[in-house]
Design a protein around this nucleic acid. Structure first.
Length: 296
DNA sequence: GTCCAGGTCGCGC
DNA sequence: GCGCGACATGGA
């Protein structure tokens, strides 16, 4: 039974879903022909579901359909859990009013975002986003895609009607995985130990990542908690802050360094401080200012 | 072979 | 606090 989830305008579903590289990371995928977002989710009941999302023409709502491949329909609780996860993934409840107000002061920037961009895709759990973020460090984007693909294919639960599709592995499943498997088959390199340790901390209850999503902790405490994850440094912590909805800090990496150098320093190598200062006037929205900075 | 990718850790100072 | 080498992997 399709379920309709509303979102404040302006919102461009197809563009927003594709604005972040996360759309390329399993188990999520984008079906271009039908403009559908699709992924396999393991609900807390243990049921493995194929979720599909489209938008209504006006883009004031998205439409969710969950396939079980079984005769038994989803329970009310299962359906609500999936809808809640989707709202989080698409950031349907985030408020971008002051971002758009600020964006209006820059005509080229405003032109780029005014159709309803800014709601960058994220994963249903912060655990999944943390693992994926660790897989972006000190490697190429192509290798990140491959690492996550193998992680999902090897350790995630299959969707029975199409066993080629898998859910993202739970912390428990990842914690139970042999370190040698992470190294030799998933090929996470030295990140294997980081991912394994994080999974064990989360699975044991020693670390509660998901509670950081409720927004009750002060921002610097959220940041400190993220940096206490082994394998998460300044770049990864700020990436995760962005994924949690805090856009005030920039995730400075080789990609950003090269973009800002070309765009603002005419090829002369600026210091990190100079790079970060470029977006100062954007205050709490620096990350999105960088993300949607028009090339010329 | 060397260097580097959307970095981070642990060390010495 | 800052500088520096090590770290798995794969492509140029």
């Amino acid at each position: 039974m399709p379920k309709k989830l509303t979102v404040r305008k302006p919102y461009d579903f197809a563009q927003s879903v594709k604005d972040h590289g996360w759309i390329e990371l399993a188990p999520v995928r984008w079906l271009a022909e039908s403009e559908r977002l699709q992924w396999v989710e393991r609900v807390s009941s243990g049921r493995v579901v194929l979720v599909e999302v489209t938008s209504v023409e006006s883009d004031q709502a998205v439409v969710l359909t969950a396939h079980t491949g079984e005769a038994y329909a989803l329970t009310v609780n299962e359906a609500e859990e999936i809808a809640g996860k989707l709202r989080w993934m698409l950031r349907l409840d985030e408020e971008f009013g002051s971002f758009y107000e600020l964006a209006k002061s820059d005509p080229a920037f405003w032109r780029a975002v005014k159709g309803g961009r800014g709601r960058l895709l994220r994963s249903p759990t912060l655990f999944e986003d943390a693992v994926k973020t660790i897989c972006t460090t000190n490697t190429t984007w192509r290798q990140t895609i491959n690492m996550v693909d193998r992680l999902v294919a090897r350790l995630g639960e299959p969707y029975a009607p199409d066993p080629n599709l898998h859910a993202f592995p739970t912390a428990e499943q990842l914690a139970a995985a042999d370190l040698e498997l992470l190294r030799q088959e998933v090929r996470l390199g030295y990140r294997s130990a980081y991912v394994s340790q994080l999974a064990q901390e989360v699975a044991s209850g020693e670390r509660d990542l998901e509670s950081l999503k409720d927004g009750t902790l002060p921002r610097d405490e959220v940041k400190r908690e993220l940096k206490s994850i082994k394998g998460v440094g300044e770049y990864a912590a700020n990436t995760l802050m962005m994924l949690l909805g805090y856009y005030g800090e920039l995730a400075l990496d080789s990609e950003m360094r090269s973009f800002v150098t070309k765009r603002y320093f005419d090829g002369r190598a600026p210091s990190d401080k100079e790079i970060l200062s470029i977006y100062d006037r954007w205050g709490e929205w620096k990350y999105l200012a960088y993300w949607f900075d028009p090339v010329s």
